[in-house]
Simulated assay, not measured.
Amino acid sequence: MSFQALVTDRSADGKVSSALQTLTDDRLPQGNVTVDVDWAGLNYKDGLCLTGAGGLVRNYPHVAGIDFAGTVRDSEDSRYKAGDPVVLTGWRVGEAHWGGYAQRARVNADWLVPLPQGLTTRDAMIVGTAGLTAMLAINRLEAAGLKPDAGEVLVTGAAGGVGTVALSLLGKLGYKAVALSGRPEHGDSLKALGADSILPRDEFLAQPDKPLESARWAAAIDNVGGPLLGKLLKQVKYGGAVAAIGNAAGIELNTNVLPFILRAVSLLGIDSVMQPYEARISAWSRISQTLDLAAYGAMVEEIGLDGLPEAAGRILAGQVKGRVLVRTR
């Protein structure tokens, strides 16, 4: 049977481009579960895959899309049967393995998670990799001792996918979240999600740079990396922690040991790609019970498969607010 897919290819001169194609099932990669994809998401990593930036895709032609949700079409694994709703995030799907920017996908059963009760496949992609990562970060921070009465929690890159979901989750869980963003025009939307206050990025970075700065944050979720993370670490309260998620501002970390040896600050790395099954199930379950999807609705944009090339440029340029959902049909 045939299906539509956004196929990304690289020409002989190295130019990467994407176009809709009609494919047949024999073009699908190896795997033991075939899924009819309803929705996929657009993430920063997807932007890299669609444009060829970052060298994430090694083999062309390719179908990108690092997360998707849909219904099992057929399965050779006893854990899944036809008709089961499922969600996939990570495992280098959309990078090394064909992903969700198609009406059909074939994957390893180990990479799937049953759709949590109460969520539709569209809901699952509002959450997506971004929301899963945000929940994993909060779980790690709480395991490190964070409690709602500890003080303010800073969320950097707050207008992006991870940041917006993190703000919503933190607000519902009783935390006082501060949104740090370079896009002040989104301030009202971020407060509506759950941010207690807005801190402009320029104002944050303009503060005097010292080896150890005034302690303000009980914890932080950092989506940016680079100089901002280095400065942030110097402002965390005694015993606090920072969950590091992204590197939109660079992979270099310039800091010193004082926050760690004088304030017992912890830097926690958060990876959503290779998370074990149990951690995924726990995070998805908590998301389904916590995230206010209705309140998040204003932060959702819908596009079709043919809208992905344009949207990829926007997400890499930092021009996407919240989550972009991709309709496959």
Rank of each mutant, 00 (worst) to 15 (best):
V324G: 01
Y101E: 05
V242A: 11
D196V: 00
G304N: 13
A82F: 00
F260W: 12
P148A: 14
G151Y: 03
S285W: 00
L20N: 08
I315K: 05
G54S: 06
R122L: 02
G187D: 11
S2F: 06
A283I: 12
P61H: 13
A215I: 06
L28E: 07
R286N: 13
K321W: 04
Y296D: 05
R79V: 05
V257D: 08
A249G: 13
G14Q: 13
A312C: 06
Y175V: 07
T255A: 13
T164L: 02
C49K: 02
T22I: 12
T24R: 10
L20V: 10
W111N: 12
D209V: 11
Y60L: 08
G161Y: 10
R286A: 13
V107Y: 04
W91F: 14
W98N: 12
K172P: 01
G318P: 05
A158M: 07
G161K: 09
D209G: 01
G304F: 03
D26R: 12
A159C: 05
A283Y: 07
W284L: 11
N59Q: 15
A12D: 15
R183I: 05
D123L: 04
P148M: 14
L262F: 14
R183T: 11
Y60M: 08
L268S: 04
G318I: 01
V257S: 14
E310G: 05
E302P: 01
K231T: 06
G239H: 10
A159E: 04
A317C: 06
E213Y: 01
